[in-house]
Design a protein around this nucleic acid. Structure first.
Lengths: 231, 231
DNA sequence: TCAATAGTGTCTGTTAGACATTATGGA
DNA sequence: TCCATAATGTCTAACAGACACTATTGA
């Protein structure tokens, strides 16, 4: 690395920063979101967000994806960088800075969870290091606000699903209730799903028609689905 | 740094990554946005986004703020992290990864621009390294989409301003035209400004009333300003 | 028949955007 | 008087959300 800086005064270098890649891995579990944690074998070990030391060789995204694969033995349905967290030194690794990623994993796909790994409810997370606590908070907020939910929701569902299941997935990701009629209107306008001939009965009540993900553009292009909709 | 990783398989470490802090510094200039670039003294030197090597000692945000101060001799009105960029090795510094920040500087505040620094029009940027090109693209997009424009627009304007000037600032930051009547309706509903007794004439046409930034909450709380408004 | 859930039709208040009109300065 | 710009009033189509109603199953 060139020992220059773009017109900025150069401080005396102390040392190269140490750097970790951390992943906030989230999965739907019933009516809630669960977050993936790991902890060391020893007794009284604290839960941590899974992380790995960053080295010069790999791209950050592939390291993050590898962490998810190693711990859950499944590929994330969605993976996005959250940002770099460096304030304070309080990270399980002691790294100077940490690049955080948010990953979404489909429900039940992670059959072979690593030992010492566990899904914990997002609303009741264990005590973490300050840096990982901030990452987790921002990561859950990013799921609610930053991502485009349409393509993700469908990757978290089976190939066919009821509109009720789809709405529940949206509500889980957005973290708020949606209005049923408005949800279906917006969905119809978005041309994202098409009905199948199948129906599924949950045991009581009227059976629900099954739909599949089939994005099409119609006249005037696909309308944006707003989903501001509140109950 | 502990030589462990959270339940993930550990690759053979190659070396600690080298890391730079880069800043996309943007300022309003007339009807356009201008971006801050620097270049080395030598002949045929390419323009670069200003950057500085990250060391263990400083927080990333203070390094980014220092870069803006050093080059523009003014404080940014807004500074936010864009993310970490590490794909490829093609950065002026040769750093393995770069933490990018986006900064907004008020127009005309930067009186003492560093030598070899220049504001270039955002729509006509020079050839950059692949990594910095990606950063710049995402940075300009983040200004349009990610930030909350209300508090920033006012920090980029003088203490009193016309509603036309305010709308132009919003249009500049959002990168699109707004509908005048809708803009003023939304502004009124937001309780963000209050009129002064002054008027300013631009030479021709009816003089415009001057307003000042005075956020208040009224009954039912401040309504969200949507500014989806298109001409 | 009743409970429970799926799906749909209608109504209303809100509002973005279009458009027109008035207000007020300079040339 | 004419033009340019500011500021404001009115109209309409779109739509979020509420509500009620029908449809279809199991108990």
């Amino acid at each position: 690395m060139r020992e220059r800086s773009g017109s900025a005064t150069l401080r005396l270098p102390s040392r190269r920063p140490t750097c970790s890649i951390d992943v906030i891995t989230v999965t739907p579990r019933g009516q809630q979101l669960a977050v993936l944690f790991v902890r060391a074998q020893q007794a009284r070990a604290r839960w941590e967000l899974p992380w790995k030391e960053a080295r010069g060789g790999d791209t950050m995204g592939s390291v993050a994806r590898g962490i998810v694969r190693d711990v859950t033995s499944s590929d994330p349905a969605w993976l996005e960088q959250l940002g770099a967290f460096g304030e304070g030194r309080r990270h399980p690794s002691g790294a100077d800075l940490s690049i955080a990623y948010v990953a979404l994993v489909a429900q039940g796909v992670a059959k072979h969870l690593a030992t010492n790994a566990s899904w914990l409810c997002a609303t009741d997370v264990p005590s973490l290091s300050p840096r990982q606590r901030g990452m987790l908070e921002q990561g859950l907020a990013a799921i609610r606000t930053r991502m485009d939910h349409a393509p993700v929701a469908f990757r978290l569902l089976p190939a066919v699903f009821t509109l009720g299941e789809l709405q529940q997935m949206y509500e889980l990701l957005l973290g708020r209730r949606l209005h049923k009629a408005s949800f279906r209107r917006a969905l119809q306008a978005s041309y994202l799903v098409e009905p199948t001939e199948e129906w599924r009965s949950e045991g009581r009540g009227r059976p629900a028609q099954l739909f599949r993900y089939a994005p099409r553009k119609k006249k005037g292009g696909r309308r944006a689905v707003r989903f501001d909709l509140l109950t």
